[in-house]
Write a protein that binds this DNA or RNA. Structure first.
Lengths: 152, 152
DNA sequence: CTATCATATGCACAGAATTGAATATGTGAA
DNA sequence: TTCACATATTCAATTCTGTGCATATGATAG
């Protein structure tokens, strides 16, 4: 029983929902700094949230040298499956910016591996470029999102 | 987005999962004292948890005089549906005693309405009788449950 | 109107969760 | 070995959550 409660508790947080969603949309494992840049949160926070998700057995990690890649843990019971399904059923709109940034971030990979770390110049430039190209209805801009979608 | 987080947060608590499960198994609306006796928690706690579930739009209430009946809110989006489905997919074992007590409690109704309040003598007797009749692998008896099912 | 009873809420407190800043760990490169 | 860097952890401060107790609310019965 504690396991179910723990998984639900782990998902009762916006950042962690975003991480799960990011991992389920990405076709590949993601390293900590990629998740961090996609979600735009501090490094140590992302690291901590990932630990919580790992303890709840929602994600698993694989170390490759100093890089650590995360992916969704494969569900081992119907509850785990439904709970993942629930996260998948949240409308794309709410993750629009995260997944846009993730795509851009993944485009910086070389040989399918992350090569840009904490304060990557390349990423800073890419982000700026992105900002000039498309208007960004950011999650932080609540009012605007509200009038677009009706706040879900 | 906040709504999804709120629903998940509301479900990240054992008592509240039990309430949701109780309401989804019961074919009828349940009043506060019935839920309280089935789950064996204090009255004010159940009342508060119900409020949290109501705020998260997971349950709805209907007042009938001094009695207040609760039932599951009908889901208005796929996320809400999946999340309920997740709770349904938890194995029955974990709610065995609750639902047993609920059945007994519902048998005290008259004309399909609850007539036993906070410290019902009738319920006290019924509970004692139940205790003498079947061994109770209670949730509090962790060791025993563990050896039976392997603690989930 | 008053007493009773189902239910809700305010208060106080303990434990849990979240976060930023600083520091630690461990690995690969020089 | 030593440095640089990706990631993890510790610390401290703050906020949030769950709960018991006492009390409030609001409806029914007498």
């Amino acid at each position: 029983m504690d396991d179910f409660v723990e998984q639900l508790k782990a998902l009762g947080d916006e950042t962690r929902i975003k991480i799960i969603r990011l991992l389920s949309e990405a076709k590949v494992d993601l390293c900590v700094c990629e998740i961090m840049d996609a979600i735009e949160d501090s490094h140590c926070n992302i690291s901590r949230h990932l630990k919580i998700l790992k303890t709840a057995k929602l994600v698993k990690e694989s170390k490759q040298g100093k890089w650590v890649y995360f992916s969704l843990a494969t569900p081992k019971d119907p509850f785990h499956e439904s709970v993942l399904h629930a996260v998948s059923s949240i409308m794309d709109e709410h993750f629009f910016n995260d997944s846009k940034r993730l795509k851009l971030r993944l485009s910086l990979r070389e040989k399918e591996k992350c090569v840009d770390g904490l304060k990557s110049e390349k990423w800073a430039r890419a982000l700026e470029l992105l900002a000039t190209m498309v208007p960004r209805p950011d999650d932080k801009n609540k009012k605007r999102e509200k009038s677009y979608y009706g706040e879900k």
